[in-house]
Amino acid sequence: MKKNLLLSAVFAAALFAVSPAKAIDSTGGCGLGSMAWRGQSGIIPQVLAMTTNGIFLNTIGVTLGTSGCDPNGRVTGGTGKLVLAVIENNMEQFAMDASAGKGETIDTIAGLLEVDSAELGAKAQQNFAYLFTDENVEAVDLTLKIMELAQA
């Protein structure tokens, strides 16, 4: 099935319009990917399916209604909302950075909270089991905990 789609897409479209263009999200959706841990099973496969057949469904950026995301597609709001947006939309990277004690998401959150990034990273790593109690962890809980750790 996937092969057929791929091939028909490649062939049909290439035949008529091999195109350097790629329409991603002209309407300003947000919250792509990285959401598997929020309990929304199937979002990534869904997004992937759309991407794979992107030539047919050029509205990859579906608005998923993430709480930290602005309808205009902008990074907006106060500190807490921004930290939530970063964690929620970069969950898989944040989890890895927290376990390693450093990384781009830690740097970003440290910047938002105006704390030292290395210190925040060390705290996140030491308290990894506290942050990620089980695999059903919620972004909101994580945000509250990381803000608490940052101030500790």
Partner: peptide
């Protein structure tokens, strides 16, 4: 995997 992206973006 996407004909509209063969040339990059």
């Amino acid at each position: 995997s996407n004909p509209s992206s063969l040339f990059g973006h």
